[in-house]
Amino acid sequence: MTLPGDAPHPGDELFWLLRRTLHTMRRDVRERVDLSPARHRLLRTAARNPEPQRQTALAAALDIVPRSVTSLVDDLEAAGLVERLPDPTDRRATLVAVTGEGRAVLAEADRQRRRHAEELLARLEPGEQAELLRLLHRLVDDADPC
């Protein structure tokens, strides 16, 4: 905690600035695509796999409890972005597959995210952009995976 008169801690400032940047990017994408961050993460995770996935596999990949995946899949299914399919290897299980509409929404979200990132980076000179990216890579590439 920073007290009045104390200099901000660099780690706190880094966290706040990165969080604020990502928040504005997510908000911008959400306003244009109407997809909450949680639904976006689930949709992206499901789309990365070429085959439909069980909800338990999606929950594990997202590091959330399976019941949370159920409500997210319900919402995405109601929006026509995913569909549930019977699991051919287990009659009791269902698989989640991304629909064509879901892939189109992800593609639009990607376009919006790239556009917003380009707008942010445009505030910097080309050398500053390269330096920012170099420094962020240095922080991330050497870090343990989350």
Rank of each mutant, 00 (worst) to 15 (best):
M1H: 10
T2M: 10
L3W: 11
L3A: 14
L3V: 08
P4H: 09
G5I: 06
H9A: 13
G11S: 13
G11P: 01
G11F: 12
W16A: 13
R19H: 12
L22M: 10
M25D: 07
M25C: 12
M25Y: 02
R26Q: 15
R27A: 14
D28V: 05
R30F: 08
E31H: 10
R32S: 07
D34P: 03
P37W: 05
P37V: 04
A38V: 10
R39E: 12
H40F: 12
H40I: 03
R41Y: 05
R41W: 06
L43W: 04
L43E: 01
T45D: 01
N49G: 08
R54T: 13
A57M: 09
A57F: 02
L58G: 00
L58C: 04
L58H: 00
A60D: 11
L62S: 01
L62W: 01
I64W: 02
I64E: 01
I64N: 00
V65Y: 08
R67F: 11
S68F: 05
S68P: 02
V69K: 01
T70F: 09
L72C: 04
V73Q: 02
D75R: 11
L76C: 03
L76S: 02
L76T: 03
E77R: 15
E77K: 12
A79V: 05
A79S: 15
R84V: 04
R84C: 01
R84P: 02
L85F: 06
P88R: 07
P88F: 05
T89H: 12
D90I: 03
D90L: 05
T94I: 05
L95V: 07
V96M: 02
A97M: 03
R103Q: 13
V105D: 00
V105Y: 02
A107I: 05
A109E: 01
A109R: 02
R111M: 06
R111A: 15
R113I: 00
R113P: 01
R113G: 09
A122R: 13
R123H: 15
R123C: 08
L124M: 12
E125Q: 14
P126M: 05
G127T: 10
Q129D: 04
Q129G: 05
E131D: 14
L133S: 10
L133G: 09
R134Q: 09
R134I: 04
L136A: 14
L136V: 13
R138C: 07
V140H: 14
V140K: 08
V140I: 15
A143Y: 02
A143C: 05
D144N: 09
P145Y: 06
P145H: 06
C146L: 11
